[in-house]
């Protein structure tokens, strides 16, 4: 495989894994949990490095996942105490954990090269150089890891399709029907946490956050049903992966950033031109309504 192909494939798989979960997060008004989790895992990464002296992917993912789950549960507990609102709970938990991570780096890991940029920017450009040798096959590590995560997410969505939708849109009915919204919500967030952790081990936090929110938000402007919404966000994700990579090469700039920019561009197009919920469509509708009201 060529390097470009590996990078695009990695980003596309990130887009797939995130695009499957993102729409649920957005319709549940939890879009920012991805952002919170992606910052909150820093102490996990640092702890693994300090305790075991390794940056190998599996231990790092496990350490980060532990803190991601801590973050999700802490936010949940704060919210349920009723003393702090949901959005404030997010804003309280993740900076605390992130600060812990920054201090950990400063204390124990500043001599070695565990820099903040690597966890925040991530370097998708390095994806082709990290390979696993399997017999005489050379597999790009990020492609394998993210492929597994994407498949797992797909299975999760397929198995819990009914439950996820009913708890997203009618939690009261879900409770009556014997599906616990709280358990499904926590499960979804843990899936998001594990996806985010795995993904930004290879591509960096900002791309994960972007891929969780932006394609799903754009899709929600374009379509009305959950299935098509996921499909549209996957398409936007892959378009961003391919176009972003081309732009990044042209500009000699961060690949993840460029992909995020393309996704945001897609969002802007959707925001303006979406057939029913776009700005133009809404303005036309408003005008038509006004004329109709004036003539009657």
């Amino acid at each position: 495989m060529s390097d470009d192909l590996i990078i695009i494939l990695t980003a596309g798989l990130v887009a797939t894994a995130c695009g499957l979960l993102g729409p649920f997060l957005v319709v549940r008004r939890q879009a920012l949990m991805g952002d919170a989790v992606s910052h909150a895992v820093l102490p996990g990464i640092v702890a693994v490095f300090v305790l075991f002296g390794t940056r190998a992917p599996l231990p790092v993912i496990l350490g980060a996942a532990a803190f991601a789950i801590v973050c999700v549960l802490l936010v949940d507990a704060l919210r349920r105490s009723g003393l702090v609102r949901g959005d404030a709970a997010i804003a309280l938990v993740f900076p605390a954990l992130f600060a812990l991570g920054v201090l950990g780096i400063d204390r124990y890991a500043s001599s070695v090269h565990l820099d903040l940029d690597a966890t925040i920017y991530g370097e998708i450009a390095f994806a082709p150089f990290r390979v696993w040798e399997l017999g005489d096959m050379r597999l790009a590590r990020s492609v394998v890891l993210l492929g597994v995560i994407a498949v797992v997410n797909l299975l999760l969505i397929a198995v819990f399709w009914k439950e996820l939708r009913v708890t997203s849109f009618d939690p009261m009915f879900a409770t009556t029907a014997g599906v616990s919204p709280a358990i499904i919500a926590r499960g979804l967030l843990i899936a998001v946490a594990i996806t985010a952790v795995t993904a930004f081990e290879s591509v960096g936090a900002i791309l994960v956050v972007t891929m969780l929110i932006v394609p799903a938000a754009a899709a929600w402007l374009l379509v009305d049903r959950m299935g098509p919404m996921i499909a549209v966000s996957l398409v936007i994700g892959w378009v961003s992966a391919v176009a972003g990579h081309l732009i990044a090469i042209r500009l000699d700039a961060s690949i993840a950033g460029a992909m995020g920019l393309v996704a945001t561009g897609c969002f802007c197009v959707a925001l303006v031109f979406a057939p029913r919920h776009g700005l133009i469509a809404r303005a036309l509708l408003r005008g038509a309504n006004r004329r109709a009201a004036a003539t009657t």
Partner: peptide
């Protein structure tokens, strides 16, 4: 101007500008 809730709007602006 759209049907997106506040947190999605915040998220989009955050990721777009940061990218």
């Amino acid at each position: 101007g759209s049907r997106l809730p506040a947190d999605a709007a915040i998220g989009v602006v955050l990721s777009g500008f940061f990218s």
